[in-house]
Amino acid sequence: MKIVKTGMAGSLESSDVLITVDSNPGKGRNVNLNSIVKRQYGKQILKVVDETLEQLSVKDAKIRLEDKGALDCTIRARLEAAVYRAAGSESYPWENLT
């Protein structure tokens, strides 16, 4: 997916994460993580971010995360939402959660 504008999702409340996705044409992925549990889970969070971006085939993007202890599923959901917004996409591939 191609990032064309700024996309944002999430919040700064406890157990959530605020993610901002910006365009970064031709310069790859630039992930900036700020987390209250960076020392404990930093690597795991970055792994989730990387996997999610891979799945969404995002090549160039600036991503900022301000994490307040979000679980992996929350990070994934917020990141997907922010990426879709930043790509200006109106159609979402809704998943069945059952």
Binding site: T6, M8, S11, L12, E13, S14, L18, K68
Partner: peptide, 16 residues
């Protein structure tokens, strides 16, 4: 009670 976080979240989404 992390009320500042709520205020800032709100203002940042609004700014966006």
């Amino acid at each position: 009670q992390a009320l500042t976080n709520r205020i800032i979240s709100y203002l940042r989404l609004r700014g966006f």
